[in-house]
Amino acid sequence: MDLDKETVASVAKLCRIEIQEQDLTPMAQELSNILSWIEQLREVDVSSCEPLSSVVEAELKMRDDTVMDGDLAEDVVGNAPDSTNNYFLVPKVIE
């Protein structure tokens, strides 16, 4: 599978990764190589297999509905570059 520069740029944007114009072409080449390598898996016939969503042979553990966490607002905002009255402050975002 061949990725073009534009696709790489848009994936980078979705992932919020900054990428320089001159790096787009080599990156497209690298990603295309990785994808073609993985594409070899398509040669295996999986038509008789259920899709796999976990490789662990275990049951999903559940918890009871009780409040036993929270009440640590100072810790929650502790690492934030900017906060006030335990709110996170971020540059204004309006879509």
């Binding site: 966490d69 929270g70 640590l72 607002a73 929650v76 009255n85 335990n86 709110y87």
Partner: peptide, 18 residues
Amino acid sequence: SGASAKFGGEPNSQVSLV
């Protein structure tokens, strides 16, 4: 997570690290 789902708490008081 085990944090409270109640309406109207103080900011970030019903937040677990999850």
